[in-house]
Simulated scan of single mutants.
Amino acid sequence: MQAPLDPPSAAAKSALRDQVLAARRRRPLADSAHEAAAIAEHLTAWEEVRRAATVAAYVSVGREPGTGVLLDLLVAQGKRVLLPVLLPDLDLDWAAYHGPTSLAPASRGLLEPLSPPLGVSAVAAADVVLVPGLAASRTGERLGRGGGSYDRALARVPVGTPVVVLLHDDEVGLDVPVDAHDRRVTHAVTPSGVVALTE
């Protein structure tokens, strides 16, 4: 029996991932702290985040735009911050963040909260959801790493909740291939500011 073929978008997504990851490796490390601080400043000043009681976020890894400063600013502002916990089936559970000492190393080089897990549906209670990504189109298509974890999680987020991908400036407005299961984001935030993405 012949193995099922990948959708035509699979090769295009893989090529775009390679292109963005290569560009990220070329970015000067010296710029990372400045860019992370700018993203944190834009997000914490944004009205949607200012009004939020609960923010779902994540701990950045590798050359992703940094979230360490942002997470601590959100906690300092009195927000309840939820972070993902990767499950064996690649779905995402969620747990509360209480500062850098509340994190521990996990699989795939991730840092995850030590707090008790709240269940996969906890993300639905967030007033704003921040997600990682590699690129986004002007209409909100998001390119992830390919595991599908966030597409599953975002399916539980109520319509109308702002879903924001953190990117570098040149990663917004790219032509992102899509599949039926892909979930759109509503905004991107870069070192230059918050960008609304519309269908």
Rank of each mutant, 00 (worst) to 15 (best):
L21T: 11
A33G: 02
A135L: 02
L143D: 06
S107N: 11
L134R: 01
S137Y: 07
E35P: 02
A125W: 14
L87S: 11
L130K: 02
V189P: 02
S102T: 04
A135Q: 12
R183K: 12
D31Y: 06
A38K: 13
Y97R: 10
G147P: 04
Q2E: 12
A10L: 08
E41Q: 15
P4D: 06
L73C: 14
I39R: 02
D93N: 10
R27H: 12
A11F: 09
R142E: 01
D170I: 10
A15P: 05
R156W: 02
S32L: 08
L29H: 08
G160T: 12
A135M: 03
L111D: 08
A57L: 00
G147F: 07
A104I: 12
A3V: 04
E141H: 15
R25D: 04
L90H: 15
D170S: 11
E112L: 05
H181P: 09
R184V: 01
G140W: 07
R142F: 07
G68D: 14
L71P: 07
D175F: 03
L167Y: 04
W46T: 03
A153V: 03
V81G: 03
V81F: 06
A22L: 10
G119V: 01
L5W: 10
L114Y: 03
T161F: 07
D31F: 00
S192E: 06
L90F: 10
T101I: 09
L16G: 00
E64S: 01
V195I: 14
L167F: 02
A53I: 07
L21Y: 05
L16E: 08
A36V: 08
A188H: 01
R51I: 08
L114V: 15
D127T: 03
V20A: 04
R145F: 13
S14L: 14
A155K: 06
A135Y: 12
G66K: 01
P158M: 10
R108P: 00
H42P: 03
S121D: 13
R184F: 09
L118G: 04
S14C: 11
L86C: 14
P7W: 14
A104K: 14
D89N: 07
S9D: 10
V195C: 06
H98S: 10
A37R: 14
A122G: 04
P28T: 09
D169C: 08
V157F: 09
A10Q: 06
R17E: 00
Q2A: 15
H34V: 15
R51N: 05
D182E: 12
M1S: 15
A30D: 13
P191R: 07
A33T: 13
A124E: 09
L114A: 12
L83Y: 08
V157E: 05
L92W: 05
E35N: 13
L166I: 14
L118D: 06
L92R: 03
A136C: 03
S9E: 15
L74D: 01
